[in-house]
Structures are given as structure tokens and as C-alpha cells.
Amino acid sequence: MLRQLLPIALIACAASTSASANLKVDEAIKYRQSAYTFMAWNMGRIRANTEGELSRDEVVKAANAIAAIANSGLGSLFVPGSDQGKGWIETRAKSEIFTDGAGVGKVAMRFNQEANAMAAIAGTGDAAALKAQLGKLGATCKSCHDNYRAKAAE
């Protein structure tokens, strides 16, 4: 089975890479700003459900949306030169996101793991586990922001 899926995965990866290589800097910034905004909205939906009556359906939808984005190849939207420029707003990506490959890879892998864990926990209805996992997922976001995102201009 793995031998059958490997060529398909390689083709999908190559297609994703070539498609992102054709993105203009401002397009890449808009797409990633949109993805992160959508994830933030879904994290807010989960948070709201941990503070009141738990709606399992809402939590599952939000967690699955976050996991889908986390596993979508979001890193390919960090095209060269997109540490400067404007999408919907001026980007706040620091240039270190392009030079610290090992650090970025570690943060991205942890984010994917925690997003997938959130999706797995979402359907259990366990509010305590959900809240704990939301904290872990949020910590991965904070780690990336602390290292690779400039503070907003005031």
C-alpha cells in the first residue's frame, strides 16, 4: 500500500512546490495572513466552548479546520522576499523565518503535532483535556510569534 501511495505523495508535493513558486510575494502574504486569521478564529471558537457549555460539533469543526490548515503545506507560503511587503496588511514576518531552517522546522512540526492532537481530542467531549490541548496548541503559536514575528506597530 505504501508503495502505491508514495508516488502520489511525491507528485502532490512537487505540484504544491511548483504552485507556490509561482506566487507573487503579495499573494503569498495574503494567503498566509488569511490562513492565520482563520486559524485564530477557530481557536477562539474552541476557547469559547471551554468557557461555557461545550458544543462538541462546534469544537470538532474548529479543530478539524485548524488541523487541515496545519497540514496544508502552509510553510510554502513563506516565499523568498515575503518577509517584506504587504498582503492585507504589512507583513510582520521576520527575516529569521528564512534563515533559521532548523528552528522553524522544529516549531512547525510541533504546531502540526499539537493541531492534530487537538483534532483527536475534540470529539471526546472532555472539556479539561480540550482546554489543556488548547494551551499546548497556543504555546506553539506563541513560540513562532516570539521568534519569527515582529511586534505590531502601535
Rank of each mutant, 00 (worst) to 15 (best):
I66C: 00
A132D: 10
I97V: 12
A117S: 12
K94T: 12
D100V: 07
L77C: 13
S82Y: 10
R110L: 14
F98I: 11
G73N: 10
G125F: 09
I66A: 02
C144G: 04
I69V: 15
I69A: 13
F111G: 02
G75K: 08
A93F: 07
L130Y: 02
A128Q: 14
S76E: 13
S143R: 01
T124L: 06
A65H: 09
K136F: 03
L74H: 04
T140P: 03
A117F: 02
T91A: 08
K94E: 12
N116G: 07
E114S: 11
R92A: 11
M109L: 15
A120K: 15
G101F: 12
T99N: 05
A102F: 05
V60I: 15
E90P: 09
A122G: 02
S143I: 01
A68K: 13
Q84Y: 05
I121N: 03
N64Y: 03
R92S: 10
G123Q: 06
K106A: 15
Q113C: 00
N112Q: 13
A150T: 10
T140S: 14
P80E: 09
F78S: 01
L137D: 02
N64A: 08
G103W: 10
G85W: 07
E58V: 13
A63I: 04
T99E: 06
A150I: 04
L74Q: 10
A129I: 00
E114N: 11
I89A: 13
V60N: 04
A102M: 08
D126C: 09
I97M: 11
E114R: 14
A129Y: 01
S55Y: 03
D83Q: 06
D126H: 06
D146M: 13
L54Y: 08
N147D: 12
I97F: 06
L130M: 11
K106I: 06
A150Y: 06
V79N: 10
K136N: 11
E90V: 08
Q84A: 15
G75M: 09
F111K: 01
G125Q: 04
R149F: 04
A67P: 03
A139N: 05
F111N: 05
T99F: 05
